[in-house]
Structure formats: C-alpha cells, structure tokens
C-alpha cells in the first residue's frame, strides 16, 4: 500500500471511530469533523513531527475545537491517549469531553470557544521564534469561525511579525450552523484578505491528501518569511450523503437507519 492509499484508508477508519465516539457519548459534531478529517490525518500521519524534545516537537491547535472527536481516534492510535481514556471519552465524570484539553498529550490546546485558537497559535509560534526553537505550529480554523473578530486580530499579528513557522488550515466547508456562509455575511475573498495581511495563501481541495501534503512543502525550511494559510475547500459532513451540505445538521448525530447508512458509506470509502 502506498502512502496516499494508507492515509485515505486511515481517514475512513478515523471517521468511523469518530462516529463511534460521538454515538457512544451521545454528543458531537460529525459534520464539522468530517470536513477536516483529511487535514488532520495528513498532519498527524506524515506532516507533523510528533516526537522529540519540547524544542522540536510540532504543535497542533484545533481552533474549531468542536471537531475534536476526529482527533481522538488519532491520539489513541498514535499512543497519546490510552485505550481506557479513549473508551471513556464523553462518559460522565471522565476528563475527556468533546473538546481537547491542554492536559491531553499529542496536542496543545484547551478549546471550545471559537476565535481563540489562532491568537494562541500565533503566540506560540512567536515564542518559538524568540526562543530559536525549530518546531512548527499547525492550526485548524473553521471558515465560519472567521466571523469572530479576534481571528482577524490574530491574522494581523501573525502577518506583522512574519511568523513563518505558523501554518493555518482554513476548513472552508462553506457553512455555519444555520446556512451557507455566503448567504449570511460574505467571507470571500478569503485569499485576498489573508494576502493583504501579509500571509502566503494556497487554495486546495481539502479532501485531497496529496494536495494537503503539497501545500505545506517548504514550510519547514521557511521558504517564505510569511505565515501560510492553506484554504481547504471542503464539504461539511463529507462522505455521508445526508450530512453533506445539509443545513442545520451541525451538532446533530444520526439516528435509527441513518446510523447504518453512515457506517456503510464510511466503509465503502465514498457514497459517490
């Protein structure tokens, strides 16, 4: 199996396990998780340096933190989260909720409130530069999260201080909770906005692992003085026919026959 095949199969496995976690806990945001599944898998199984000392270990910030259940199977798979911890996610009284906590190994943020992770990631990246630490900071933000003004404060900061050790994946699934973003307040043109704040920008298909990998080539060797935003065009609820682009599916779990339908499509790899 070549690397891309492996990562694509891993994505399906992670998405299945994500749904397991959400159904078992009776809570979660699978549509938000599925739009960024390939991004997170590509990061954890190839792009990021996960081991090494604190000065070298890459950092990961899930700013759209309601998508964290996509991360938990990965943290378990890679040994950052024990089987016991994993089995108890979202079980009452357990420390692992639907959000990440700074105490969880393998990632670097306590999340949940939108608009906070990018400023934190920028501070972390800036601190690394001041310390001459070599690690990269990777951050996933949501497109609708960009309605938060604090995101733009952070974008301005990172551009100004030339934080070229910071890579942001913008999960451009085109939807908020109630509607498509461009039906609400227009967010485009994202690329122009980031560029005008001093960032490099690439726009890719966020479900194509090859494109995700290619987008960050050169970042580690700081080919540019600028932070990088990878705008990932994605589909909210990607891979499950009734979830894809469905309004008001945000934070909703499948029920009854829809559960089997979801698993069937995740097993086959695609409903298309």
């Amino acid at each position: 199996m070549n690397k891309i095949d492996f990562l694509e199969k891993k994505t399906q496995e992670v998405k299945r396990r994500c749904l397991d976690v959400c159904l078992k806990g009776g809570y979660g945001h699978p549509t938000s998780a599925y739009s960024c599944a390939e991004i997170v898998v590509a990061l954890y199984y190839g792009i990021m340096k996960l081991d090494g000392c604190e000065e070298k270990r890459d950092r990961f910030i899930m700013s759209k933190n309601h998508a964290s259940p996509i991360l938990f199977p990965i943290l378990n798979d890679l040994g950052f989260m024990s089987d016991e911890e994993y089995e108890n996610i979202m079980q009452e009284g357990n420390k692992i909720t639907n959000h990440t906590n700074i105490a969880h190994a393998g990632q670097d943020f306590s999340g949940g409130a939108l608009g906070i992770g990018l400023g934190y990631a920028a501070g972390l990246a800036h601190g690394a530069k001041l310390n001459n630490d070599q690690y990269m900071v990777f951050c996933v933000i949501g497109d609708a999260e960009c309605y938060e003004g604090s995101i733009w404060e952070a974008i301005m900061y990172a551009g100004n201080y030339e934080l070229n050790n910071l890579v942001v994946f913008l999960d451009r699934n085109g939807m908020g909770v109630t509607d498509f973003t461009e039906n609400m307040l227009k967010l485009e043109p994202f690329s122009d906005k980031f560029r005008s704040f001093g960032w490099d920008v690439k726009r890719i298909n966020g479900h194509d692992i090859r494109q995700i990998q290619k987008a960050v080539e050169g970042s580690r060797t700081r080919y540019s003085s600028r932070p990088l935003c990878v705008i990932c065009d994605t589909v909210k609820g990607h891979g499950i026919d009734y979830m894809e682009n469905a309004q008001l599916m945000h934070g909703t779990l499948p029920k009854d026959t829809y559960i089997d339908r979801a698993y069937k499509q995740l097993k086959e790899g695609s409903h298309e």
Binding site: G119, H126, G127
Partner: peptide, 26 residues
C-alpha cells in the same frame, strides 16, 4: 526591543497571544 511586542489595540488577541507565548515558555 525583542521583549516588547505589540498586538495593537486588540485586547482579545492580547490575552490569547500572551497565553501562546507562555505556552512557548515565556
């Protein structure tokens, strides 16, 4: 100079970025 950083008039980012810098050991 390298220890005096500005976020501009952006108090929300002041707090989050401060925390990120602290996470980097500052």
């Amino acid at each position: 100079k390298g220890r005096y950083l500005s976020v501009g008039v952006a108090e929300q980012n002041l707090i989050t970025t401060a925390c990120g810098l602290a996470a980097a050991g500052k």
